[in-house]
C-alpha cells in the first residue's frame, strides 16, 4: 500500500530524515514515535504527498508520488484520511460541513450522503454539535471532528499526527478506541505520537508495530514498547 524506499528529506541545508525504508501493508496498525523535532510530521507528510523526498522514493497505492501531477496528488489524498494535531478546519463553516468537506470537494452528492454523515457524527459523539463552528468546540471535540473528516471518504489509510496531543487521558483513550475500531474495519492506520503511555495502552487492544525515529533514521522500537 505505502512503501518508502531509502527516503531522505533535507530542508534548509540540513538533513531531517535519512535512509528511511518502511512498508505499510493493508490493515496494519503502526505507531511512529520519537522526540519532538525528530521528523515524525515530516515523515507523515512524505507519506501523504505533502512533501517530496530529496532522495529515495515513496510509492502509494502502486504509484510513485514523484511522478504524480497536482490533480493525481489530489485524487491520492482522497484515499488517505489525515488527522492533524491542530485539526485545520475552515472556521467559517459549521462542524457538519467541515466533516463533509472531502465529500464536497470530490463532487459527491451531500443529500445522498446525509445519512452516512449523521451516522459518522454520532459515532464520534458530535451529532449535537453539527451546527457549531469549529472555534466553539473543545479540544477533544475538534480532534473527533478531524477524525470524522479523515474517515468520511472511507479511505484505505488513516494518518494521524499527534491526535491526542491536546486532549486529556480519557479523551485520548476514546480517540484511540475510534482508531482501533477503524483498523478492525480493515483500514490501515499510521499514528505519530510521542505519548508512550498511549502506545502501551493501545497494544492491549491492537497488534501495533511501533516505529521510532532516532538520529534521522527509522527503526523498529524495542520490546519496551
Amino acid at each position: 500500500m505505502i512503501e518508502l524506499d531509502n527516503v531522505a528529506y533535507s530542508y534548509g541545508g540540513g538533513e531531517l530524515l535519512s535512509d528511511v525504508s518502511v512498508r505499510l501493508t493493508p490493515g496494519s496498525f503502526h505507531f511512529l514515535t520519537g522526540p519532538s523535532g525528530a521528523g515524525k510530521t515530516t515523515l507523515l507528510k512524505l507519506v501523504y504527498g505533502a512533501l517530496m523526498p530529496t532522495a529515495g522514493s515513496v510509492r502509494a497505492f502502486g504509484a510513485d508520488l514523484r511522478g504524480l501531477d497536482r490533480d493525481q496528488t489530489a485524487l491520492l489524498r482522497r484515499k488517505i484520511g489525515v488527522v492533524h494535531q491542530d485539526c485545520r478546519f475552515l472556521d467559517h463553516l459549521p462542524v457538519a460541513e467541515n466533516i463533509a468537506l472531502p465529500l464536497t470537494v470530490s463532487g459527491r452528492d451531500l443529500a445522498a450522503e446525509s445519512a452516512n454523515l449523521g451516522e459518522l457524527m454520532a459515532w464520534v459523539g458530535l451529532r449535537e454539535r453539527a451546527d457549531a463552528l469549529p472555534p466553539e468546540l473543545s479540544g477533544g471535540e475538534r480532534q473527533r471532528a478531524a477524525l470524522a473528516r479523515a474517515v468520511i471518504m472511507s479511505p484505505e489509510l488513516i494518518v494521524a499526527d499527534e491526535p491526542t496531543g491536546n486532549v486529556d487521558w480519557e479523551m485520548s483513550q476514546r480517540l484511540l478506541q475510534l482508531l482501533v475500531e477503524l483498523n478492525r474495519m480493515g483500514k490501515t492506520v499510521l499514528i505519530a505520537s510521542h505519548d508512550l503511555a498511549l502506545i502501551r495502552a493501545a497494544k492491549n487492544h491492537v497488534q501495533a508495530r511501533v516505529l521510532r525515529i532516532s538520529n534521522r533514521r527509522l527503526q523498529l522500537a524495542g520490546a519496551d514498547l
Binding site: A50, D71, A74, L75, R77, R88, F89, L101, P102
Partner: peptide, 16 residues
Amino acid sequence: AQVIEVLRLVGARDRY
C-alpha cells in the same frame, strides 16, 4: 492560503 491548504489536504483539485 490556509483555506487552500485545508482544501488540498482533503483532496480538492486546483480546478475546484
